[in-house]
Amino acid sequence: MLLRLALELLCIITSVTSDRYQLVPRPLDSVIPERFYEQNGRVNQPPLITLTEPETIQNEPLYMLIIVRSSSHHFQRRDAIRLTWGNVSDTAEGRVSLVFVVGKSADPTVHSLLLLESQQHKDLLYVGFEDTYANLTLKDLAVFQYARKLMAHCQYLAIAGDEIVLDISGVVQFLADAYDDVAINQHQSEGVRELSICYEFPCCTPVIRENSSKYLVQNGYYEGTLYPSYCSGTFFVIHMGLVGEIYNMMLDTPFFMPDDVWLGIIYQKLGNRVIPNKDYWFLNTIMNPGVLSRINIPDQK
């Protein structure tokens, strides 16, 4: 009896602590301001308020969970995704499920429609903070908070915007060929931590300080003049085994925008290596929603 209780306690402790991270010291030549490496306890506090959670995902094995970041009023985009590229569940490597994450709307009509949409499709992660550009970092935190619950049942997490058409079969085939569990475990045994397969913006992009720009960053949020390398937020893939570490690092890293740069800082604090990939599986569909193909994006140097 005592042995069983001890084993159960060990399982509880392991489940709580297994996704803690080891902070990599800040390199002397890093462009990231020192304050992002200061550990003074958690600066961002969970839990986030969730109004509805998807009912389409149970405790079933998944090869990939795709979470689409969508604005609350983008009803037509979500419907278009459900009818086209998002209408995929079975692939050669396993099941794929898709979830939309949306923020709260101040418009009561939009709020009511979101609740109806959630009841109808059961695929909305509807979080209780305002859906604004300034809150995109909060939305990222909500994505990882939710994905963390599914770590034991899923192999990959993909994050996308709602403005794209995605070739899911191309993504799955790429992962199966080049970055399956065997390859990732081999790299980890060699001391290489692979985090994200994405289009990488290399260091060192200048920080925008123009007051008229949507991407203005005040000195109080980011004191440096250059950004580190980071993944394009339009679409990227993460091995699910790292989601817990990323989530906890998010809680210990001050928020600021742009959110994809913030995630880039988190990657570097964890010592993870981004896998740059120029062969993209999506098209921006705002101007041409009828096209679905793989495209090649040239190096940005």
Rank of each mutant, 00 (worst) to 15 (best):
L226C: 13
A80N: 12
I246A: 02
L125W: 03
N248T: 12
G128V: 07
F100A: 03
G233L: 01
V192Y: 07
L115G: 02
V165P: 01
A142H: 05
L125G: 05
G41E: 14
H187P: 03
V243P: 02
Y227N: 05
Q186V: 08
Q45W: 06
D167V: 10
E194N: 08
H121L: 02
G224Q: 03
R193G: 10
P33V: 14
T285G: 10
S213M: 08
L5Q: 14
N284K: 00
P33L: 13
L270H: 04
L242H: 10
L136A: 04
H187T: 11
F75N: 05
R26P: 06
F36Y: 13
E210F: 05
R193W: 12
C11F: 10
S89E: 12
P27R: 04
S18F: 11
I266K: 00
Q58H: 15
W85Y: 07
L9R: 13
G103Q: 04
M249V: 08
V96H: 06
E130L: 07
A134F: 10
W281I: 07
V99S: 02
H153N: 14
S212W: 12
V261L: 05
L166I: 11
D259H: 05
T253M: 03
I159P: 02
D252E: 12
D177K: 15
V127R: 02
V99G: 01
L51D: 08
L3A: 10
V88K: 08
S169W: 08
P298S: 15
H121P: 06
T14S: 09
F201G: 00
C203K: 06
V68T: 15
T234P: 01
V16E: 10
V43L: 09
